[in-house]
């Protein structure tokens, strides 16, 4: 059923990774991504790989799910790997026809592939353990200094959360309109792609009209409940850093710092 789709890929749980403040998770992820693009050498990368594996283990997310998130990028990883291998100048190890493979090329290819895999799996871990709403709140909170230069941070976050709220409602409505059209003989399943795309037009028009009507009613209802922008607004669940965030922050900083230090020393 269309109605049962999950938003994002949140995998509910109560592990320490789930319970961490979303801001800590977001900042940790940024630090980690910087690290994997800065470090050099086998040992620092081994540290990075172990770090992500440890985080997945603590989060109780099945490893299979993290691997599944890597599936769509397999082609990209192979493609970048091959290109790097062929086009990096350096000491030639062997040559087939005009294609020569260098030792430096092999190293760069492996590093690039590893970086992409680590990038995607660590990001997947964040979206598995954090609900879209929590991520929105974290972004609003982290970007709030930008309000000083008149960026509408609160408004963007509000728009995001309302969009998330209305996705299931609009999907349900699409379902209803499509059923109504089918009952009158519309055909969405057969014919060329062009014909099927054309058949969707009579679905999209009423959907848009009703979305605008909903938007207007929602705006009135929000005003009636005293909404007046982000100024002076409090939250039921305000984000708070706990001791867990302190510990996690120290661990992440130590691991990333350690990896960078190792790559400088070695």
């Amino acid at each position: 059923m269309l109605k049962d789709i999950t938003l994002g890929q949140y995998y509910p749980g109560t592990s320490p990774v789930h319970r961490m403040d979303p801001r800590t998770k977001l900042l940790s992820l940024i630090l980690y991504i910087v690290t994997i693009f800065v470090v050099k050498g086998a040992i620092p990368y081994a540290v990075c790989v172990l770090a992500v594996m440890a985080a997945v283990w603590v989060s109780t997310i099945p490893a299979k799910m993290v691997l599944k998130s890597l599936k769509p990028i397999v082609i990209i990883v192979i493609f970048t790997g091959i290109l790097n291998m062929l086009y990096t100048p350096g000491r030639e190890i062997f040559r087939v026809w005009i294609l020569k493979i260098t030792a430096e090329g092999v190293t760069t290819a492996l590093t690039m592939a590893l970086r992409i895999v680590l990038l995607v799996s660590s990001t997947a871990l964040l979206t598995y353990t954090t609900s879209p709403m929590a991520l929105t709140d974290a972004l609003e909170s982290l970007l709030s200094p930008l309000k000083k230069i008149k960026l509408p941070v609160h408004e963007f976050a509000m728009m995001m959360s309302i969009a998330l709220r209305f996705i299931p409602t609009l999907i349900e409505e699409t379902d209803k309109i499509m059923s109504a059209q089918k009952a009158r003989g519309a055909d969405f399943e057969t014919g060329s792609i062009l014909n099927r795309a054309k058949a969707l037009v009579p679905v999209l028009v009423p959907l848009f009209v009703s979305a605008f009507r909903r938007a207007e009613e929602l705006a009135t209802a929000m005003e009636c409940r005293l909404y007046h922008g982000g100024e002076g607004r409090t939250r039921l669940h305000s984000l708070t850093y706990t001791r867990l965030d302190l510990i996690a922050g120290i661990i992440v900083a130590a691991v990333c710092g350690g990896a960078i230090a190792l790559s400088i020393v070695l």
Binding site: S161, M222, L236
Partner: peptide
């Protein structure tokens, strides 16, 4: 449907109070 703002029931009920600060 057109007057519920949040994705969780209790957060929606809290909306007006949050606006009151």
């Amino acid at each position: 449907d057109n007057q519920i703002v949040a994705t969780v029931v209790e957060e929606d009920v809290a909306f007006a109070c949050e606006n009151l600060g």
